[in-house]
Design a protein around this nucleic acid. Sequence first.
RNA 1: GCCUCGGUAGCCUAGCCGGGUUAGGGCGCCUCCUUGGUAAGGAGGAGGUCCCGGGUUCAAAUCCCGGCCGAGGCUCCA
Length: 634
Amino acid sequence: MVRVKLPSGEWIECSGAGRILDCLPKGVGLVAKVGGQLVDLTSPLPEEGEVEILDFDSKEGRQVYWHTTSHVMAQAVKELYPEAKLGVGPPIEEGFYYDFDVGDKAFTPEDLKKIEERMKDIIKRDLEIKRIVMSREEAIRFFRERNEPYKVELLEEMEEETVSIYQQGDFADLCRGPHLPSTGYVKHFKLLSTSSAYWRGVETNPVMQRIYGISFPQEELLKRHLEMLEEAKRRDHRVLGAKLDLYSIHEESGAGLVLWHPKGAILRKIIADFVIEEYMRRGYQLVSTPHIARGLLWEISGHMGYYKENMYVFEKDGETYVVKPMNCPFHILIYKTKTRSYRDLPIRYAELGTVYRYERSGTLHGLLRVRGFTQDDGHIFCTPEQLEDEILGVIDLTLYILRTMGFHEYKVVLSTRDPEHPEKYMGTDEEWRRAQEALAKALEKRGIPYEEAPGEAVFYGPKIDIKLVDAIGRTWQCTTIQIDFNLPRRFNVTYVGPDGKEHYVIMIHRALLGSLERFIGVLIEHYAGDFPLWLAPVQVRVMPISDKQLDYARKVYQELKDAGFRVELDDRSYTISYKVREAEEEKIPYMAIVGRREEETGTVSVRRRRVGDLSQMPLKDFIEKLKAEIASRK
RNA sequence: GCCUCGGUAGCCUAGCCGGGUUAGGGCGCCUCCUUGGUAAGGAGGAGGUCCCGGGUUCAAAUCCCGGCCGAGGCUCCA
């Protein structure tokens, strides 16, 4: 007797020698979980114990669904282009892809249509998907016969002695599985894009053609997903950035170098002022350091060795200089101007430091990936005992800032060292143990769920990365909190302990917004350009109904300006409808409309963007209303 | 850097496949009329190296080759 938990939460009981699938109500479930292990619904029912059935509402269910769709796509491609060689085809965060070696060919949109048609046909055939277990040797022979060299290469590098192959009709793929019971399980799908990718992501390897797609069990879900992709396009910060007149990037001045226009510059200043003020409140001291430094500094820091490719280096009078790619060495030099006692620690330096890093041209992307950017950088020098409290402080500060900026959901990753290869890392075992523990404990104390990523730490220390989730569910990496065992040694950064001896400080690098450029890019997409009042580059536009009210409009404008608001006057001789339409499109939060009636009563008619007319009110009341809304930062 | 796709006025875009009058439209800009009460008032006008170079042709925005630039990916990362 086996207890089976259905996706609905309901339990049923099964027994017998059949497949798991046979005891389920028709159409229920995509994959099963037995003893923590995902298995095919077509696998035999265990004799006893519990089986959990998963459907598309679970992450695992979706992954299996997408994985099978990728096999269906691969089968369609093989049927249409028999010469295509299979690469790999996994499910991803949102959908799936499959890589093919098709020689010089590239898939066109018309090819995708053809492939989609063939996929529909394969789904209609409702081919049974069979799991076949064989020895690795057998599998190598199998794929060699089928002329699939990439599969053979994968197999030759595997350590397992037996492997599984999934077969549907004439199509077979090396695959761990599990998969859906038959191709008919795939319902609604769409091939989204093509690109090239190197075999196994290595530049010297052959180029393969990748096709991305997505699938859903209900048409409605597919429709919604495609709408979400449209929505993401609508929010593109590069389009909005131009439309809202925030910034531009020019061929003449260089790719990846941002020119902030008045409206973008003010947005940048509002954000910068906000974070600096908050830093000062929390015990940071502001420092400021130059844009260039002698090469010597970067020799000491080690960047000349392992980071040289990314640095802008130049010569003057036979001396090498470097445009700074980081701020930390400067902050260290400031720290080192005095002998520091443990009583002086922690010392927290902050700087909005503009750094320059050479990035390959293909990687540049609007504001999200640039070559010159301003980090909201900070370095904390502390003792090992202080580490946990400092991390707590940084986490609290980060969450406060991100929440204020309108982000309420996060994904947190704790990157730790690879326990198998401690020799790849700087610092002692004790330091690593202590640091990793401090990071984990701080997260736990705040009840923040996180994912641990062993082996993902950089060589100089463990780190916490915070990815924020935006209004339409996409994640963006901004915040990083890193512990550094390397630079204190290279620069001999120490403090005198209670024992009268010198000890290396613990150094924490932290950038909370990451960079102003990237953060503003994310912010534009998050709000779709429709910023809350406290961030809006223009908060109010005063609009006279006709030229007869120009004098009164100027007076209103001046009073609002004197009250400290970011205000504009639309003194053009256009109709009010036209001015309203334009202000709405420019996403200006408030319109102060003044006509004869307002002039006579000393009032303004207030219109809130996207809401409409809020009716006439005394100018004083409007000012109070604005002040309250700005103070709420909502 | 590599692969794919693209490049027509400040911006968006038709024309390109099947070469053939002065390259068409919209926004914006300028001038004039209009002074209008909450998402486009009307008329007129200016504005183009059709990315650049070469080739094919009687004829090239259109076809071919090379280059430059951009976008989407790969890779990397804040």
